[in-house]
Design a protein around this nucleic acid. Structure first.
Length: 864
RNA sequence: GCGAGAGUGGCGGAAUUGGCAGACGCGCUGGACUUAGGAUCCAGUCCCGCGAAAUCGGGAUGGGGGUUCAACUCCCCCCUCUCGCACCA
């Protein structure tokens, strides 16, 4: 026990009481405003880390605060329990993924309980439970019926380490988001969700999300990548067909002097057939196929291409222009073909320069000279059209409309919109995930598993390896099933769903976690949704948060929910960071691997104190929440996370900061315990008007109510809320409890009041200790069934205000005035102030600026 | 390259409808109590200067310019850092 603060028994005691009383389980209640507060559920990796502690501490303050403010708060927790690490554990330690996962969950649930988070555990969801994943399968089948889930062959991102496909969103800079190994391309058949069907709504919906951080919305907008332009048909010379391209710059079409196709373009081979270029074209296509997609897509790779031998007709100039293949043209975007305008597109310019192709100006800047013979780079800005027939002289912006109209009138093309967003590939060639409920029959083709046969249970006895394809494919009893349609022999789909599918609707399930005949119970989900406040890491800005928005809209269109957007407000908390130690020979070192002189204990070389980085095992700078619980307890750990930085910023870990926070709690314990005999006033409350000795302290307590309430409510400024509490604690500590005998009642009353306010206001941050102190203060019911205190604006207003007096903008004096002082009184008092008069000697008074209740600025004229 | 965000004491951070820059905490310095202090309490702590002293003077919010009675806050230019996207036609 530490100096009178026995956090271990206090925390255990109250956690047990909360659990037994079930105070945090909720149900729908029409008499209270509802509030759905959600933090991103964790992957059960083994133990919680500081990022979880911070995330959930932020959420728990909100939950407890809002309950005391009279809201009906839904605050659930669950487990993102499917995923690859479970399979890795199976291979490394021979533990079954299910056992590994459920043991981790048991341990982590206990950790969360020891942190004292106020979850409604009755609603706990584990997405690897058949009760949960059957509804994921059900939703898959519904999406399939609507054409929103489909199967296709495509070139996919393949991670060799994970032995599975990755979605576009899961590739970061050409590397796997999970293990940072290079991603390679591979042709595979797999299942996709048609997220692109919602591209426009996902984009426009962002405008309504005023409670989301702007950076996240920007990232999503960029990811969706809407481009407005036109599709234009370029007739092929000597053929009936035409080549369709997409462009956003139809105003530059008169400068289109050649065309480029992606090497994989279906016309690529046939165009060169029979030409003298055929051999080279085949060789080029082969080479591109072998080359890694990621490397090819990097911007710094040199552009290269090959002439197909074929020509197209520029529909506006009627010019015969050559068709090339180019490594930088992507099959997946637009039509996989482009018109090349080297004068107005830098990529086309580089290509044209390399291969000696024609460059002709189409759009030139208004105020600068440009010449085909001297052009050094493409001009990509807005400007004026040249060489453009009837459109010459038109502004480029205007010309885009005019040329689009022209193309539509002549039947040469049409306005068109393209998105960078691709459909979401959800097939994973792994075991520990939700089985895709599809059966393949030779006779009937692709057959959905009938709803009444759900769930497709993930079999238990599976040999897990990281090679040779999906583990499920080797389980004969799973694979071989009769076709639901014809009864003939058929086989199951052996891919499982991306785990992001599970997390795309778990927030809906929390509203009715035990619904037996549907994924959600409609009245309950409509009562609770949307999530009023969602809290989690910014790393999911485009992954989970985009998928979840898509799912919500799709599920809405199935008639299951009535909201358009799942998360009304979003808080993305910063990372938890700590300084690192690095030895030139041994790399990152643990703090205990470095001695007091800062040398590596192994080789004696000075270890460099590295930069502050996100806590991670590999950087050896993690803090284990279990250690904090043992040394300081949950309240201190939570309070420090909230005090050290505002939630959206990175938090820099500081052991000394932890100590300071711990000391603060000990001081509060002493404030209560050292004055036990002094507390409580037998004669009842004293009206503020009659308070004398305790007047200032009472007012400070009232002011603190205002500050803490506002800081929590607006912008989540927990750090400043806590500093306000520290100020109040300091003032209580300074308060003279002795005084004159006739003032004793007055002092007792104010002291007790201030202390009670301190404990209540602190309770969302340090709930266990505050319950305990509340009990010490002789209160009989839980502090969390107490209403959040209110303040009186008239009391908060001090009788006297401090007015700053400036002369020519510099502070020269300060005067105290009654708070009722009007502008004239302020001006008069300022001008009468002796110090100010000294500064005004020899000068004439020009303007006098008066800011009510704050400041007087006297502007002087020239010297007299 | 494009997009977004951020630069304030020794450190984490306060203060932006423009109105006392540095709240609160850490660290540090001095003192008290102590056999002892890495416990606790009290005082001090942005920089420079005069001074016995402060309700003294000057300077200071990445750098430079501007608007204003008044700028950490608004406008323009520049520098640095972080994050996201990265040949998307």
């Amino acid at each position: 026990m530490a100096r009178g603060y026995d956090f271990k028994s206090i925390e255990a005691k109250w956690q047990q009481i909360w659990e037994e009383s079930g105070v945090f389980s909720v149900k729908e209640d029409p008499d209270k405003p509802k509030f759905y507060l959600l933090e991103m559920y964790p992957y059960p990796s083994g133990r919680i880390h500081m990022g979880h502690v911070r995330n959930y501490a932020i959420g728990d303050v909100m939950a407890r605060f809002l309950r005391m403010r009279g809201y009906n708060v839904l605050h659930p927790m669950g487990w993102d329990a499917f995923g690859l690490p479970a399979e890795n554990a199976a291979i490394e330690h021979g533990i079954h993924p299910a056992r590994w996962t459920y043991e981790n969950i048991a341990y982590m649930r206990a950790q969360l309980k020891r942190m004292g988070f106020s979850y409604d555990w009755d609603r706990e969801i584990t997405c690897s439970d058949p009760d949960y994943y059957r509804w994921g399968q059900w939703l898959f089948l519904k999406l399939h019926e609507k054409g929103l889930a489909y199967r296709k062959s495509s070139t996919v991102n393949w991670c060799d380490v994970c032995q599975t496909v990755l979605a576009n969103e899961q590739v970061e800079g050409g590397l796997c988001w999970r293990d940072e190994s290079p991603v390679v391309k591979k042709d595979l058949v797999g299942w996709f969700f048609r997220i692109t069907a919602y591209a426009e709504e996902l984009l426009s919906g962002l405008d309504g999300l005023s409670g989301w951080p702007e950076p996240v919305k920007v990232m999503q907008r960029n990811w969706i990548g809407k481009s407005v332009g036109a599709e234009v048909r370029f007739p092929l010379a000597g053929r009936q067909e035409a080549l369709t391209i997409f462009t956003t710059r139809q105003d530059t079409i008169f400068g289109a002097t050649f065309m480029i196709l992606a090497p994989e373009h279906p016309l690529a081979l046939s165009l060169s057939k029979g030409t003298s270029e055929e051999k080279e074209v085949i060789a080029f296509i082969d080479r591109m196929k072998r080359e890694d997609k990621v490397r090819r897509a990097a911007a710094d790779v040199e552009k290269e291409g090959v002439f197909t031998g074929a020509y197209a007709i520029n529909p506006l100039t009627q010019e015969r222009i050559p068709i090339w293949l180019g490594n930088f043209v992507l099959l997946e975007y637009g039509t996989g073909a482009i018109m090349a305008v080297p004068s107005n597109d830098q990529r086309d310019f580089e290509f044209a320069t390399k291969y000696g192709l024609t460059i002709r100006l189409a759009v030139v800047p208004i105020d600068a000279e440009m010449d085909e013979s001297t052009i050094g780079e493409a001009y990509e800005g807005e400007g004026v059209l040249v060489n453009s027939g009837p459109f010459t002289g038109m502004g480029s912006r205007e010309a885009r409309e005019a040329i689009a109209d022209f193309l539509e009138q002549k039947g040469m093309g049409s306005r068109s919109v393209n998105y960078r967003l691709r459909d979401w590939g959800i097939s994973r060639q792994r075991y520990w995930g939700n089985p895709i409920p599809i059966i393949y029959c030779k006779k009937c083709g692709t057959v959905p598993v009938p709803y009444e046969d759900l769930p497709v249970i993930l079999p238990q006895d599976v040999e897990i390896t990281m090679k040779g394809g999906s583990p499920l494919a080797k389980v004969a009893s799973f694979v071989n099933v009769p076709c639901p349609r014809c009864g003939g022999p058929a086989r199951r789909e052996t891919d499982t769903m991306d785990t992001f599918v599970d997390s795309s609707w778990y927030f809906l399930r929390f509203a009715s976690p035990h619904a037996l005949d549907a994924p959600v119970e409609r009245s309950q989900v409509n009562y609770w949704m949307p999530v009023d406040q969602y809290i989690g890491g910014v790393e999911h800005a485009v992954l989970h948060l985009l998928y979840a928005r898509f799912f919500t809209k799709a599920v809405r269109d199935l008639g299951l929910v009535s909201v358009d957007e799942p998360f009304a407000r979003l808080l993305t908390q910063g990372m938890v960071c700590k300084e690192t130690y690095r030895c030139p020979e041994h790399g990152f070192r643990l703090p205990e691997e470095v001695d007091a002189e800062g040398r590596c204990r192994e080789c004696g070389r000075p270890a460099e104190i590295g930069r502050t980085e996100k806590m991670s095992k590999s950087k050896k700078n993690i803090i284990d929440p279990d250690d904090l619980l043992a040394k300081y307890g949950a309240d201190t750990a939570r309070l420090f996370c909230l005090f050290a930085a505002p939630p959206e910023k990175d938090l820099e870990w500081s052991d000394q900061g932890m100590e300071g926070t711990f000391r603060f709690l000990i001081r509060i314990v002493r404030l209560v315990e050292d004055h036990k005999g002094f507390l409580r006033s037998p004669s009842g409350p004293i009206p503020f008007a009659k308070l004398v000795a305790g007047r200032a302290l009472y007012r400070k307590a009232q002011q603190t109510i205002q500050r803490v309430t506002q800081d929590i409510e607006n912008e989540f400024h927990f750090n400043t809320a806590i500093s306000a509490l520290m100020e109040l604690a300091n003032e209580i500590g300074r308060f003279d409890t002795v005084g004159q005998p006739d003032e004793e009642e007055d002092r007792r009353f104010a002291y007790t009041y201030a202390l009670e306010i301190l404990v209540i206001l602190l309770s969302p941050f340090a709930p266990h200790l505050c319950e305990e102190l509340w009990e010490c203060l002789d209160r009989k019911t839980s502090i969390f069934s107490t209403a959040w205190p209110t303040y009186d604006a008239a009391i908060i207003q001090a009788e006297e205000i401090l007015v700053v007096v400036q002369v020519d903008g510099k502070v020269r004096s300060r005067v105290y005035l009654p708070s009722s002082a009007d502008e004239d009184a302020m001006r008069g008092a300022a001008l009468a102030d002796e110090r100010v008069r000294g500064w005004l000697r020899d000068r004439s008074i020009g303007k006098v600026v008066v800011v009510p209740k704050r400041l007087v600025n006297i502007v002087t004229g020239e010297h007299r």
